[in-house]
Nucleic acid binder design. Structure first.
Lengths: 218, 218
DNA sequence: TTTTGATGTATCATGCATCAAAATTGTTGA
DNA sequence: TCAACAATTTTGATGCATGATACATCAAAA
């Protein structure tokens, strides 16, 4: 494992585990132990406890029983609920971004989409997924809604392990609606941005629910 | 202080501090220390650390610098953003609840509103506020959206200290739109439920923003 | 099938080193 | 002499490590 340089050990460990969750290094249903993490990171259990408490708080980890800490498996119902919530939240963010977007904001969005397309073309799916997330988060930033951004982060963290597995299997397009959203930002058309965002979120829905079904088979 | 009986000490302390935040026992900008909490609760610092990590994670507390832990003050911008988010989220919950509400669900809602009105009539504002929150959360439960309920809890926790102060000063009606929402649940009219919820959230908005202004004066 | 024991892990208490801010002291200029 | 400011000490709280205790879990024995 690499070094942990950050504000505090606890925060560093939180960031590390979060990334592992999104990158797919930690699989759903995988069991973790505080001592195990502490040993593998070369620290004691205390800062790991801090990080785990935070991760438990946003349901990025779950403790099924007292000494059973693991990566939660997202049920179909949970995924659909998150999708419904994201539709509202990210629709609001997209509408807000379209209302206030400056030229530099649009330029940033275009840059992110470009890097997404490049990563997809090169088959670098983890990077493509990261750019996809960056695009969605950027809209909340442009809209000037940090609290919304925080809520979104937590939702994406919960779907992270699932999504990474899905796009690793089926290499789907992620940027189709992104161009529409950018156009809506340029023309300050909030309604169009909201509609495009809704479409973007709902597009992979059926595919992912089917993917969840296949996971539940084994 | 009372006893702490729960799953674990950390959870108990989290619940305790959350309640103090919502009940207004902890004022905005009030400084806290881990050791102080531990002493006043009769525990050591470790479980308090756990609770504080969780509270920091959902921004119910903030650490302005390394050794400066305090109750955050909600700016006008933050309050307005939370209101906008709640409009979307609770609108979704109300619509979902209206779609699937059974007789027993409607009965529960009516019971909550009744207790709210009784508390208001008796001048028991903390209880009235609690019933108001209970009503909003109940809709998410009826809609079968636990994840949305979790997101909502965090948002309410952030506005808690402010709201308790506001309603302690200006004793306003809280149930006006609640009756409309209940009617919408009875007739399974999702659109009406959503609209009534939106009105319910936006009604006190201007009063609260003014209240924030007065707080910033001193 | 029930009981018992071993093993591993979590929760919590405690102690120490560190570090930041407050308090105190010392210094300088008018 | 006094006020203002800089340097230094003191206070106090955190981050982290470590150790004690208790509790699940699982397997072996009764």
């Amino acid at each position: 494992m690499k070094e942990l340089n950050k504000d505090s050990l606890g925060h560093a460990i939180y960031g590390r585990v979060s990334q592992d969750l999104i990158r797919g290094k930690l699989q759903p249903n995988q069991k973790l132990t505080i001592r195990g993490l502490a040993d593998s990171l070369g620290t004691s259990s205390t800062p790991v406890r801090d990080a785990v408490q935070r991760l438990l708080q946003d349901n990025a980890l779950e403790q099924r029983s007292m000494r059973d800490l693991r990566v939660p498996v997202l049920t179909t119902a949970a995924y659909l609920e998150i999708t419904a919530i994201r539709t509202e939240l990210e629709g609001l963010a997209a509408a807000g971004a379209a209302a206030v977007a400056q030229d530099k904001d649009v330029a940033m969005l275009k840059r992110i989409v470009l890097r997404n397309e490049e990563a997809s073309a090169a088959g670098k799916w983890p990077l493509a997924i990261e750019m996809n997330q960056k695009f969605h988060f950027a809209l909340a930033e442009i809209a000037g809604m940090p609290i919304l951004l925080g809520a979104l982060s937590r939702l994406w963290l919960r779907t992270g392990p699932l999504i990474s597995g899905y796009y690793a299997k089926t290499h789907n397009d992620m940027v189709e609606q992104h161009h529409q959203i950018i156009t809506a930002c340029e023309t300050h058309d909030s309604a169009a941005a909201r509609a495009a965002m809704r479409a973007d979120i709902e597009k992979p829905r059926d595919g992912i629910t089917q993917y969840i079904q296949t996971l539940e088979q084994n």
